[in-house]
């Protein structure tokens, strides 16, 4: 028994990993950064980046709420910032410590979800639209209605994402994308059910769509602008359009979690990502629109002449931001969405 106890003691003294003093815990979307940027940051500052990824906002929220101390810098979407703000999870940004924030475009500095950008700094932004294959579509793609045009039956990829698919349907019916009233949501659901029962939809998916569009698996797809640009880079037959009825414009900002352990390092990290040359690296890697005016200047015409990356003022004005749909309304959305998914 003595030996047993001795062995147990050895186990208990098993090397406990010493907490390195220079660490920053970053929680970002999958595939949402140029990996070399992390290494550059570590080399320049000597701060170790503890890099973790999530796939959906909801996923992220569950983790952050369960263990707020584990994260310093997080990348939620706009409407999630609103919810995190309401729950008091966000630290105010000290702009004196983030000088590179000066490059953020003027018109993105006062977003609806976080007035005056007190708690967040934009990282990327983009729109939602239709990615289509010009060899398979001969009608003009300028309206959401084309996703209901039976000529393209069994040739449409929809996003398996409640807010996006419901949102564009609401939009096509002339409602706001942030609708909370049952009759409007009912109408959108019926329209989506019709889309499914008339055999329009080939698949509901998220991450697979871009590669499948490159492979020519479908004519039309509901898609985010960055993923669309990624696909267009690989297949020049593809094009992207933001319909005339309007659409969603979104921002994915960086936020710092309230009471985080490495505030100073977190600020350095956010500042680093706002540095123009770094913003260029990230923008060219993940193909979303950059909110960084100096970075855009560095990228030049290749960026500004690209309507997907750099949508016109007119396009942006007909788009709408998502607002947080809270727990009292969201179950309506999810119940209706399940009804769509289950329609035969």
């Amino acid at each position: 028994m003595k030996r047993f106890a001795a062995l147990l003691l050895v186990v208990l003294l098993f090397p406990v990993i010493a907490l390195a003093d220079g660490v920053v815990n970053v929680f970002n979307w999958e595939d949402y950064i140029d990996e070399s940027v992390l290494k550059m940051f570590e080399e320049e500052t000597g701060i170790h980046v503890n890099y973790m990824c999530f796939t959906t906002n909801e996923d992220m929220m569950v983790q952050v709420e369960a263990n707020p101390g584990a994260f310093d810098v997080v990348f939620p979407s706009d409407y999630m910032v609103e919810r995190m703000l309401n729950k008091g999870l966000l630290e105010e940004i000290n702009y004196d410590h983030i000088p590179n924030a000066q490059y953020i475009m003027e018109n993105l500095r006062n977003p609806d979800y976080d007035p005056n950008g007190v708690h967040s700094i934009p990282y990327m932004w983009g729109t939602v639209g239709i990615l289509y294959n010009t060899t398979m579509v001969d009608d003009p793609v300028d309206s959401w209605e084309i996703l209901w045009n039976t000529k393209y039956a069994n040739n449409v990829f929809m996003l398996d994402s409640i807010r996006d698919s419901m949102g564009i349907t609401l939009c096509s019916l002339g409602y706001s994308m942030n609708e909370r009233d049952y009759p409007a949501l009912r109408a959108a659901t019926d329209k989506l059910v019709l889309q499914k029962t008339s055999g329009m939809v080939k698949a509901y998916q998220v991450d697979e769509t871009k590669d499948k569009m490159v492979a020519g698996e479908a004519a039309l797809a509901l898609m985010w602008s960055g993923d669309a640009q990624y696909a267009i880079d690989l297949n020049s037959d593809l094009a992207f359009a933001v319909p005339k009825e309007g659409s969603n414009v979104w921002i994915d900002p960086m936020v710092i979690i309230k009471g985080c352990r490495n505030l100073e390092n977190a600020e350095k990290f956010v500042d680093f990502l706002c540095r123009p040359d770094i913003a260029v690296l990230n923008c060219e890697e993940i193909r979303y629109s950059s909110p960084n005016s100096a970075a855009i200047e560095l990228m030049g015409e290749e960026y500004t002449e690209n309507p997907v990356l750099s949508p016109s003022e007119e396009t942006i004005t007909r788009c709408e931001f998502f607002h947080d749909i809270d727990e009292t309304i969201m179950p309506i959305y999810t119940t209706l969405w399940n009804e769509v998914k289950n329609a035969k």
Binding site: K196, Y204, Q205, E208, K341, N342
Partner: peptide
């Protein structure tokens, strides 16, 4: 179902 069924049936 999500991968091969394209999410058409849950």
């Amino acid at each position: 179902p999500r991968v091969l069924g394209g999410g058409n049936t849950m």
